[in-house]
Design a binder for these strands. Structure first.
Length: 415
DNA sequence: TGTCCACAGGAAATACGGGGGT
DNA sequence: ACCCCCGTATTTCCTGTGGACA
């Protein structure tokens, strides 16, 4: 080991990083750090490159009636995550409102963002807050009360009211109550011409709806196709230009990221994240962004997702995951059943002092793990040896160890 | 063909924590 | 300060079930 001081090592590292900076403005590599207006500005550039043109045309013809005094029907929009539904809609509605204002047509549009799952109560509460009809409650107020406040707030507005409900399928439990209110009750109690815009990433989302609501709901549908590689290239080039110094990207990198992203999800946000991670790695290594670095970045991104997901998950879910890991290693990697997992879970709870939940509840935890694809499980009948879930831990050994370590650390920290 | 395993998973009951009304 | 009501989380109770085995 060289006899260096902390100081000198630090200084040389910083010098190194500064000398090799390739990132000009980091914020453009991470959507969450961009404020709304910047996002929309970036978006406008993308639209100018004819991306999402078909969708915007459709939206225009759907809403054209507003400027003529007609009442367009409701709209359901379907598209996977990261296909620009939210931003396109915001952009479009702003534009529409501007045009309407020029023609003296009163239009009000509101965006209810349900991007994280929440129950009916929260959803209504958020809606009420957004409209300025109520403050934020945690509990203790009835649904009825919330609905009345929303109605009271809107009752006398005379123009068009466009409610843009983002990610409807995130309303867990009692979605029917929520929908019934919006679709059947609200229009009857207010004089505004109500246009509901539902956005969802599941195509069959109305299937689980109360049939009465469904039949009442006259919908026009619009589908956002995933971005293809060419679209993604446009999007990435704009980011490269805004975020990175000239010459810091090797030829072929943008094409590669676009191809990878379009192949497995078509999600623009993830494509940008991949660009960001690549840039970060390049900066650390003191090079430009190379094709090989992109591969590394993709791997790391993949791994981080699971870890951050679990770290922020409720303790019981972490315990369940730990139990599955333990039971699987005890079974030498063979699939395990619910009973094995539950035994391991009880053991884990004993050791850590966590209160163990019932078998019934544990089953639901396993379901949740499956949803996050941390485990794969299916129910399977083994004849007279009963019916059980077959649980398979289908992650790399390295990742499993990382996850297990992270969970254990979490539990030790809490004493 | 019937039995019976070892659970799945739905429904109702109960526990809980917190907020509103008075 | 008190009580009551709410939504949420978990438990309790229950019925259902695919297929190996006898």
């Amino acid at each position: 080991m060289e006899p260096t001081t902390v100081r000198s090592r630090m200084a040389s590292r910083i010098q190194h990083m500064v000398g090799n900076a390739i990132i000009k403005d980091r914020r453009f590599l991470d959507d969450e750090q961009l404020i709304r207006s910047e996002q929309l500005a970036v978006l406008e550039e993308i639209f100018n490159a004819n991306v999402r043109d078909a969708e915007i045309q459709e939206l225009s013809s759907h809403f054209a009636g507003v400027l003529r005094g007609d009442h367009p029907c409701h709209l359901a929009i379907w598209g996977k995550t990261g296909t620009g539904k939210t931003l396109t809609l915001s952009f479009f509605l702003n534009l529409l409102a501007e045009m309407a204002r020029a023609k003296n047509v009163p239009v009000r549009h509101e965006h209810l963002d349900l991007s994280t799952p929440r129950p009916c109560f929260r959803a209504l509460n958020d809606l009420a807050c957004m409209l300025g009809a109520s403050r934020r409650y945690k509990k203790g107020i009835s649904l009825e009360e919330l609905m009345l406040r929303i109605e009271a707030e809107l009752a006398s507005y005379p123009g068009y009211l466009i409610l843009f409900i983002d990610e409807v399928d995130n309303v867990r439990r009692d979605r029917d109550a929520f929908m019934t209110f919006l679709v059947r009750r609200l229009p009857q109690r207010i004089q505004a011409k109500l246009i509901l815009v539902f956005v969802s990433n599941r195509l069959n989302w109305p299937d689980h709806l109360d049939p009465r609501v469904k039949s009442f709901l006259k919908l026009n549908e619009l589908i956002f196709k995933p971005y293809d590689a060419v679209d993604l290239q446009h999007i990435l080039r704009i980011r490269v230009e805004k975020a990175l110094l000239p010459g810091s990207v090797q030829p072929g990198v943008v094409e590669k990221i676009a191809a990878m992203a379009s192949q497995d999800h078509g999600d623009a946000r993830q494509a940008v994240a991949l660009l960001g991670k690549s840039a970060y790695l390049a900066e650390k290594a003191g090079s430009t962004i190379t094709l090989a670095l992109v591969d590394n970045a993709a791997l790391e991104l993949d791994r981080d997702r699971y870890l951050t997901l679990l770290r922020s998950a409720p303790v019981q879910l972490q315990a369940a995951m730990a139990a599955v890991i333990e039971a699987t290693s005890r079974a030498k990697g063979a699939p395990i059943g619910t009973g094995d997992a539950y035994d391991a879970y009880q053991g884990f709870c004993d050791r850590t002092g966590l209160r163990a939940m019932t078998g019934r509840a544990f089953g639901d935890l396993l379901d949740e793990l499956d949803m996050y694809s941390l485990v794969r499980s299916r129910v399977l009948s083994r004849g007279r040896y009963g019916r059980t879930r077959e649980i398979i831990l289908d992650l790399s050994e390295e990742l499993i160890q990382k996850i297990y370590g992270a969970i254990r650390m979490n539990f030790e920290l809490r004493g």
